[in-house]
Design a protein around this nucleic acid. Structure first.
Length: 417
RNA sequence: GGAGAGAUGGCAGAGUGGACGAUUGCGUCGGUCUUGAAAACCGUUGAGCCUACGGGUUCCGGGGGUUCGAAUCCCCCUCUCUCCGCCA
């Protein structure tokens, strides 16, 4: 949820929403609705005050006066009801529209759409094209099987097998160890959540099509553990002294990938179900931009230590999604494709989700919505795939990255079985 | 899945149609006393929204309803607990 007051009064805030593609006519319409709502609220409340006073008077009235007063109050009530109905109508209209307004882009975010990102840095030397692409290598080493998965679940599912599974849990354990040094509290979160949780976390109504719905139980399968982590302090007031609160979630993630037919059909890159380690931070508003830089730094270190060449981009305003005010993508070099592909990202949602969740902090200026941030610690499927491509030997065997070897029982090389 | 009980402020727990935004206890914060602390005593202490900053209004799990008036009565939903069944 955006800050309606800021949208009306703060030109920069308004401009940030419009840069994300929101119609400026709708901003005007929303502001007008808000004004109308406030006027109607004041009118309704003063009628209500009158009505309350009348009721109170009945309680205190002498018995012989009661009937007359009750009749009078009954007549007055219809006026109040009319006013209440029109107020409710305005409120619904305003809230429905307000929910569609995106969190304004930060001033450091470039204009434009998907292709208008800004490259911040490139690190590492691009690996030459390997013998096998990631999908081929997975089959070659019998550590990924998509054909069998298709038979039981349809396209975009995969089995991860054998030493790849050892690497998967090595990645998880390694991340947990590293993040615990930065006081991230580990969390395994619910992957089935209610609709209002999807709204409050900032995903609905915008991303509804990309989420699996279990209609019979009125539950939704989350696309990221971020949903569960964002809901952890719903309705709470957090103590300033405990901030920042950092969590690291682990869960399976489910995505419908609607509208991506024909894209990335091979291997693990784009599947309906994958496991992910996710960072999530509750921050004081004054500190959230520093926290974003920390998340980025942690993500970069991951690829430095895994010895994967990468670059960092700042995503352009039009490609940010509803909730993020700013987002970095960290893209790893995929030599078989000759391009960088997104492996992790981190975003500052500022107060967008905190306001919906009712997660607030007590400050000298009263209670304010907490800022929330999230960042991918490790999207496991894509990380495995990047390792397949970048650590492949000429003979088609695969080197286990050095930092993961201790977590894989000393395993150094994966050979065909 | 079946049967029953419940949901009230930071926590515990009263309140069953008008005096209740809510008794009380604990906790919180401030003070008295004390070299300091504890104890004791005195006081303080929920949140949202609107505001011409005087105030107004809403909130007792959520949503509807009855009534001039609802924490209290009625309906629906959600959740929690107990017993049975099932189960990693």
């Amino acid at each position: 949820m955006i800050d309606l007051k800021a949208l009306a009064e703060d030109a920069a805030y308004r401009a940030g929403a419009i840069r994300k593609g929101f119609d400026s006519a709708d901003v005007d319409r929303l502001n007008a609705l808000n004004e109308g709502f406030k006027a109607s609220l004041a009118a309704t409340e003063s009628l209500r005050a009158e009505s309350n006073a009348m009721s109170k008077a009945i309680g205190n009235a002498a018995p012989e006066e009661r009937q007359a007063k009750i009749a009078e109050a009954g007549e007055f009530k219809t006026r109040l009801q009319e006013s209440e109905e029109s107020l409710a109508g305005l409120k619904t209209e305003m809230e429905t529209l307000a929910l569609t307004v995106p969190n304004p882009a930060h001033e450091t975010v470039p204009d434009g759409g998907e292709d208008d990102y800004r490259v911040e840095k490139e690190v590492g030397e691009q690996t030459p094209e390997p013998k096998f692409n990631h999908a081929e290598l997975g089959e070659h080493l019998s550590i990924v099987d998509t054909k069998k998965a298709v038979a039981i679940s349809g396209s975009r599912f995969a089995y991860v097998l054998g030493d790849a599974v050892r690497m998967q849990f090595a990645l998880v354990q390694w991340m947990m160890d590293r993040l615990s040094k930065h006081h991230f509290v580990p969390a395994v979160v619910p992957v089935l959540v209610r609709e209002d949780m999807m709204v409050d976390a900032g995903f609905f109504p915008g991303d509804r099509d990309s989420v699996y719905e279990l209609e019979r139980d009125e539950l939704f399968l989350v696309g990221t553990s971020e949903v569960g982590l964002a809901g952890l302090h719903r309705g709470e007031r957090l103590d300033v002294d405990n901030l920042p609160l950092r969590y690291v979630g682990y869960s399976s993630c489910f995505r419908r990938e609607a509208g991506t037919y024909g894209k990335d059909t091979a291997g693990l890159f784009r599947v309906h179900q994958f496991d992910k380690v996710e960072m999530f931070v509750y921050s004081h508003p004054d500190r959230s931009w520093d926290e974003l830089e920390l998340l980025l730094q942690l993500e970069e270190e991951t690829f430095q230590q895994l010895e994967l060449p990468y670059r960092v981009i700042t995503v352009a305003a039009g490609d940010l999604g509803g909730a993020a005010a700013k987002k970095y993508d960290v893209e790893v070099w995929i030599p078989s494709e000759g391009r960088y592909r997104e492996l992790t990202s981190c975003s500052n949602y500022t107060d967008f989700s905190g306001r919906r969740m009712g997660t607030r902090i007590k400050t000298d200026d009263g209670n304010v919505a907490v800022h929330t941030l999230n960042g991918t610690a490790c999207a496991i499927g894509r990380t495995l795939l990047a390792i397949f491509e970048n650590h492949q030997n000429a003979d088609g065997s695969l080197n286990v990255p050095k930092v993961l070897q201790p977590y894989c029982g000393g395993l150094e090389v994966i050979e065909p079985r």
